[in-house]
Amino acid sequence: MTKQWAGIAAFAALAASVPFFLGDNPYIADILITMLMMASLASAWNIVGGYAGQFSFGHAAYFGTGAYTTSILLTTSGIALPLCIGAGILAASLIALLTGAIVFRLRGHYFALASIAVAEIVRLTAHNLEITGGAQGLLITDITFGNLDLNSKEPFYFAMLFLLVTTLAISLLVRHSRAGYFLLAIREDQDAAASLGINLYLWKNMALIVSAALATVAGSIYAIYIRFIDTSAVLSLRLSIEIILTTIIGGVGTLWGPVLGAALLVSLAEALRTNLAGELLVNSGIITEASPIESFLKNNLAHAHVLVYGIITVLCILNLPKGILGLFRRKQRT
């Protein structure tokens, strides 16, 4: 466990020094911020999905609730930024509590199904209310926080990094405490867990609320960073699924799996979007710009990152049940 704390500290120090090497490169900074955000979201999801084994297919609801609550409060009231983020946490925790309180009375796949339903209710509500800007979305202008330059990328890089490190620290604390053993027992066998005195209902709800609260903060930071949110960006089922895939591909139920998954998938999405494969082939002279292969790659692959995620997920589930992180672990365990 001390080793893992050292790992988190080393990661934090390394990641914190990146901006100083990088200088002013907004393109790379944007990719890194997205990576940190997906890593935070996947780590947060991992607490309820990976440790407690309760697959939430609606984590976008918490992310989006954070984004909307914070944005609305920032634009319509004079409340200070940290309080706006706090309000987001409160709102999303309430949604998590309501969902969990009802659905965790049932077992099996009901929670997964209900989480989709709740997320869709939240999405449709946001889509039709006036205060959320409806389908047009919400523009966030004129925000300040202390003397931070909120037009630069740096504050957001550090904010997301802080969130990720906090999420990792909470995960590590939970995993090695009584709560962690209880969550893992629930994942492995609910009847056995109950026979050992574990209150299934209570601990599943606890896991969901902690997970939801962390996902909310990611949403709040994202909204202030992008300055524009709409339901398709922050409340979509696609985002919920990307969070799950990131965790599964990286290594579900592990500390570093979600981080690894985010690093890989965000890079991959970017490579696909910019048609990196096609460019490489052209630049290395294997194909010409006019070749049908290049035009196929350019026209199709760029929009196919979710498809590629899906294929990787299937391969991971079939061959790497512990995700890509499991590749490195296999030797240690036996």
Partner: peptide
Amino acid sequence: RVKPLAGL
């Protein structure tokens, strides 16, 4: 029918 926490 034993119920070990198999992954632990």
